[in-house]
Write a protein that binds this DNA or RNA. Structure first.
Length: 470
DNA sequence: ATGTCC
């Protein structure tokens, strides 16, 4: 059905009537991408107004409307914004914190840390457990201030802001939260959630670039806290509410779409701008969420180890978001609306966008989590604009959630991981099965494609010691 | 992903 043109062993193209679909994959991954609706979804995106670029990263799989593991860029003047291009978990992201303590101490106390975190970190699909409860005024303040709100209230240090994408705060001009989003946000700040979200402690297994690793605060055999979560119910509610408003508005205007999951509006519309504001408010909530959760986890760990808290925030990075950025496409500098959905931002050394970051001289750390049973990677981008400064975000599913439960129902994941030296604790057996390593692509292969395609280079490889799932 | 299938 698709005429896939091989450019290199790690890069493929599909020609369309507008822009090429650019695919980072090898033969194996390409075959997997071809087994679900990923390519059809990518093709539909190329039909949207103002499309300038469509990328599928090596972890791509089908999602709601836009594939997860995709980047879609639209012209700022002529183009659209789409809630399905960001996803339901707005500012889902990853935070990595280097623990300045011997890994042996963590390993010796691993079980106590595991149960300590499990007992004290709010998690799972509940809406009334948080570390920091908010009234309406404070909730709105969080969505304007992001990570700064958390730091002002005792969760971390001001210095942390230099190691967060956008310094942990996106500028908000108008309050565009919906009423239901406000309600949900009050009781979930500082909570992990469920699904693929996790909190784990890893060990630095291998360093590939010593100079860059030490600039990131990463050292061989040191423990790293890795946290994956987003904007919880607040972001989810923004996505639901604006998707409904977009559909009503599009119906009134008699707009049609390649399929209804791609409902979108010209960015010049007021409602489109309101969604962008609300999504950015959700993004700020997620920055505050990870700041609070990360710091709370440190308090728990160091209390168990009976030591003062000693850490370096390596980075906090986003992989579900829409942004206005300038990029060079075909030799022309263009202002674009970029949707990164399950795709991570990747600015290289001395990129002007990093001027307020700790990492201007070296490029920021790119955090790519694997699965609960496999490695995670920290990379740094090469100097290139071929991917609009974007990269994959994880292993990427091969089995849908339901399919994973059905196929893997007889597996004892806790026992399996224990054999590999990984302690695992989760709220539900079903939840763990959905996230089983076999439900995902091989992270080493996904990363290998990224490296061979010259998008980024490896800095460090991490191996899990203990994992908490919601 | 999700007050997870009102």
């Amino acid at each position: 059905m698709f005429n896939i043109e091989k450019v290199t062993d790690y890069f493929y193209k599909i020609k369309t009537n507008t822009v090429d679909i650019e695919i980072y994959a090898n033969k194996t991954i390409l075959k997997k991408i071809g087994e679900d609706d990923t390519l059809k979804q990518a093709l539909d995106i190329t039909k949207l107004p103002g499309i300038k670029k469509v990328l599928l990263m090596s972890d791509a799989h089908q999602g709601y409307g836009f594939p997860i593991g995709s980047v879609a860029a639209f012209d700022y003047e002529e183009g659209i914004i789409s809630p399905g291009g960001v996803g339901y978990d707005i500012n889902c992201g990853v935070r990595a914190i280097s623990l300045n303590v011997d890994v042996e101490e963590v390993q010796k106390n691993a079980e106590r840390i595991l149960y300590g975190l499990y007992a004290q970190i709010p998690k799972g699909a509940v809406s009334d457990k948080a570390i920091y409860y908010l009234n309406e005024k404070k909730l709105r303040q969080v969505t304007f201030e992001g990570a700064e709100f958390a730091i002002k209230n005792g969760f971390g240090e001001k210095l942390d802001l230099q190691a967060i994408e956008d310094n942990g705060r996106i500028e908000i001009n108008n309050d565009c939260l919906t009423n239901d989003a406000v309600e949900r946000g009050k009781t979930e700040l500082g909570s992990l959630g469920s699904g693929n979200h996790f909190l784990e402690i890893d060990k630095v297994e291998e360093i590939f670039d010593k100079k860059i690793a030490s600039a990131f605060g990463i050292y061989q055999n040191y423990p790293i806290l890795l946290l994956h979560t987003g904007s919880r119910g607040l972001g989810h509610q923004i996505a639901i509410d604006y998707l409904r408003l977009f559909k009503e508005n599009a119906n009134q205007k008699k707009l049609s779409f390649p399929n209804k999951e791609l409902t979108s509006l010209p960015f010049s519309d007021k409602l489109a701008k309101d969604y962008f504001e609300a999504a950015n408010q959700a993004a700020n909530y997620a920055f505050a969420n990870r700041q609070i959760l990360g710091f709370k986890a440190l308090q728990i760990i160091f209390e168990i180890l009976k030591k003062p808290i000693n850490y370096t925030l390596i980075y906090d990075i986003v992989h579900n978001i829409a942004k206005i950025e300038q990029h060079n496409i075909n030799g022309k500098n263009q202002k674009l609306i970029i949707h990164r959905k399950g795709a991570t931002r990747a600015f290289y050394a001395k990129h002007s966008a990093l001027k307020n970051s700790r990492y201007f001289e070296i490029g920021h750390p790119i955090l790519i989590p694997g699965t609960m049973g496999s490695n995670s990677y920290i990379l740094v981008a090469n100097e290139s604009d071929q991917t609009l400064n974007s990269i994959c975000h994880g292993a990427g599913r091969v089995l849908g959630r339901r399919q994973a439960i059905k196929t893997l129902k007889n597996q004892d994941l806790i026992a399996q991981l224990k054999q590999k030296g990984i302690l695992l604790l989760g709220d539900s057996k079903k939840g763990l099965l959905e996230e089983a390593p076999l439900a995902y692509k091989d992270i080493d292969e996904v990363i290998d494609i990224t490296i061979k395609a010259n998008i980024a280079k490896k800095v460090a490889k991490l191996k899990p010691i203990l994992v908490i799932k919601g």
